[in-house]
Structure formats: C-alpha cells, structure tokens
Write a protein that binds this DNA or RNA. Sequence first.
DNA 1: TTTATTCACAAACAGTGTTCGCGTCAAGTA
DNA 2: TACTTGACGCGAACACTGTTTGTGAATAAA
Lengths: 237, 237
Amino acid sequence: MPTAEPLPPPPWVRGANKSGRRQLSLEAILESAMRILESEGLDAVTMRRVAQDMGTAAGSLYAHVRNKAELHELLLDAALAPVHVPEPDPARWRDQLLELLTGTARAMVAKPGIARVSMETAIPTTPNALRLMDGVLALLDAGGIPPREALAAADVLALHLTAAAYEMSVGGTPDAAAEELQRRTSQITQYLELLPPDRLSHLRAAQNLFETEEEADVDGLRLGLEMLLDGLRARSR
Amino acid sequence: MPTAEPLPPPPWVRGANKSGRRQLSLEAILESAMRILESEGLDAVTMRRVAQDMGTAAGSLYAHVRNKAELHELLLDAALAPVHVPEPDPARWRDQLLELLTGTARAMVAKPGIARVSMETAIPTTPNALRLMDGVLALLDAGGIPPREALAAADVLALHLTAAAYEMSVGGTPDAAAEELQRRTSQITQYLELLPPDRLSHLRAAQNLFETEEEADVDGLRLGLEMLLDGLRARSR
DNA sequence: TTTATTCACAAACAGTGTTCGCGTCAAGTA
DNA sequence: TACTTGACGCGAACACTGTTTGTGAATAAA
C-alpha cells in the first residue's frame, strides 16, 4: 500500500444510490464535465481530467460515453438547453428569428470553447440542436419562405451563427485572447510599414478605423445575420 | 551501434548546399509539410512526422518555426498563394468579388484540412491572407461601399467563406466523411420516429427534401455569399 | 449460499508538443 | 595553416493525450 488510497464516498451522498456500487452515471459524468468546462475551458475537458474529478480512472467513462467527441457533443447539447424557441408570430417572425439566433450564440459563448464543438460536428444530432433547427425552420415558414429556400437559408444561418460564436471564443480565456489579438495587430502594422506604401493600400486605410472600432462581439453577429436576412428577402422577391 | 544509422544524403542533392551542414531550412520544412498535408491531411502534419520525413528529429524544427501553429499557418499561406486578386472594375465588381471569394474557398478545400487553420487563427497575419483581404476591400471600395461598412462586410464575408470551406472539408478523407454523414442522418431519422409525430414537424418536412437535395458543396457557399452581398446592397440603400 | 454478470479499475500502448544539454561541424580570425 | 568560437542539428526526456483490454470485486439473481 504505497499511497493513501482515496476514501470511498460516504453512502448517504447523492441520495443513497440504490446500488452502492456504481457512483458512475452519464448524468454525473456530464455534471463533472460541465463544471470543468465552465472553470477551465473545453481543452481541459479530457477523459482523464473528468475521471479525476470523479475520483475514478479514464477508462471507466467509456462504459457511458462512446468517445471524447460524444462527451463534448453532449456538453454542447446541455449548453443549448436553456435557449427558448418562441411560438412563431407571422407579424414579427424576423425579429423572433434574430432573437432566437442571437440567443443561441449567447448560450454558446457562455460556455468557453463550446462553439468549437458545434463547428467540428458536421451536422448536429442531439435533441436540443434539432429543436433549435426546427425552430428556425418554423420561423422561416411563418415568414412565407418556401421550404426549399428555407432549408438552404437555415443551413447558411446556422453556419454563420456557429462560425461567429466560435470566432468570439478563441484562445480560451478572454485575457489570453486579447493578448493574442494585440500581438496580431501589431504584427500586421509592422508588416505594412515594411512594405512600399502603395501596396495593400485598402488594408492600410482600414487599419485606421480598426483601432477606433472594437466592440465587435455580438454586434458583429447581428450585422451578419441581418445581412443574410435582408439578402434572403431581396432574393425571394 | 545497435541499429543501422540512416545514411547521410549525397552531397550533390538539392544543388550542393553552400553550407554542407544545414540541410534544414524553412523552405525545405514547408515543402515536406506540404507534401504530407496533401497526401495524409492536416492531422498528419505533426512535428515528428515532418521531421521524420526530412530525416531529422522533431526538436530541430523549432529553430525555424516557433510553433506547430505557426507551421500550420505558413501552410495556409502557401495554400492561398495561387489565388489571383483581380484589378477592380467598377462595372463588374460584384462578380469579381464572388469569383475571388469562391476561388479562395477552392484553394482551401484543395488542401485537406487547411481550412481549419484559417478557422482557428483569430485574424490572419500572413502575407497572402493580407493580400486577399486587401483585394476584398478594394472590390468593395470599387462598388462604392463606404469604408466603415466595407470593413464590417469584409469581416463577415471572410468569416462565412472560412466557415463554408471548413464545413466542406470535415472528417479528413471524403469517404470517411460520407460515412459519418450517413450515420448522422440515420440517427436523426431514428430520433424523429421515436418522437410523437407533431413534434419537430418542420424538421420532418425538411427531412424529405434533404434526401433529394445533396450537391451542396460549392453551391452552398455561393448561396451564402450572394445572400450576404444582396443583404449588403439592401442595407446600404 | 452459490452462481453469474455487470462494470469500475489500473496498466499499457502509441501517440502528441515542447524543452534542453550535448557535441559536432563550419566559418571567421590570427 | 592552426585555432577558437559560435551556431545548430540531434536525441532524450517530460508531461500530457485518447483508447483498449485483462482483471477482479461487488452486486443481483437463483
């Protein structure tokens, strides 16, 4: 007995499990994983880290989860759970759609790095993702968009939404991201100063407003979504 | 001498390097890395794999490249090199812009997995990426879009472009991706059959056209881009 | 009480990125 | 031509990763 073995949990925690054996369950695993996700980001949600948090070994999780990918996907689904899908009102379907989409983006950004999961999974399969997709289609239908175009538009909207949410949450912690962004912009400035002044002139001009702009965040998402919706209207007319 | 040591390369290869010592250079590293990228995908471009391909050790690469991330970014830049930026013609700026963007997407999709690099880097800094960005801004300027909006629009367009290119190249090899997609769609069908028939009704309706649709690929990108450009026009009016 | 089965566990495997001394080799200097 | 010096390729090591598999114990059924 070289090291102090971890004490077993007292039998009265978690409601005196009917079977004293298994303290492992998908629900408990997701709780642990979500806790780690919120405090340390997606990259910290590894099989070993989750297992350690539950006082067990990594291999034990594979009885409840097929993959690390599946675990991450379940986390995404949990993150999407609080998003509310409105009852379609044909009079204000456009605002409802915008609200649904920005709400989804907010829910994703709230859990650091979870947008990457959405980006990595080809087409989402989990219940909440399907629920949101159905909500988007319902609102497009309420807006009188024919089903064929609605499907294509929903695809484009979902893609843009996911990409924007992902872009908002790069680099894990916000301060690291800010630092990285600072490094990048200064790199660009250096490179532009190195070049002859007539090259990349439009980028130079943009560089100036770039400093004063900032505050992209959720506004950048809104702009893209509104462009898409305006484009959809212009296109279906 | 437990194992046969690898033979040193004959001195006449690669033009009898002025310094017989260093067969390592950033250029040679990128050549090797690009070869591996094209034949085995981005995930195979690891420091060890590239080093092995050059007959050296992983640690040696760090004299020429700061990171694996930097190596990947340089590969992205190389992949973007052949994209041609047209001279802006105010009469057909919209078509030119569409061509530039789809061309960029094509260049990305051509190298398996390289779009992921573009997605992962917050804002690109490499020369070719800046060159393309400048080209987009130039075309928007030729179209009479005011600089402020042009910058925002270019951001949105680049985001959409990257996301679409990334979505086109998930799963590495195309057959694995197709298999995964098959698995996903059948999962959705199963889930829908399990639910009461009045739930997720719009998704059910879409499921039917989903089978007949397909052929998204580059058309899906065009649709999104055209929606965005139409939206831009509707918005600036 | 005995049997049977489930299932958590630990170890092992094959990888990963990155760091750091150690020598060796090439170039510059006297 | 001989010597010094500094660059830099090299290999080993560290701390991780996801996943598989044989083992053994604890529970539920008979």
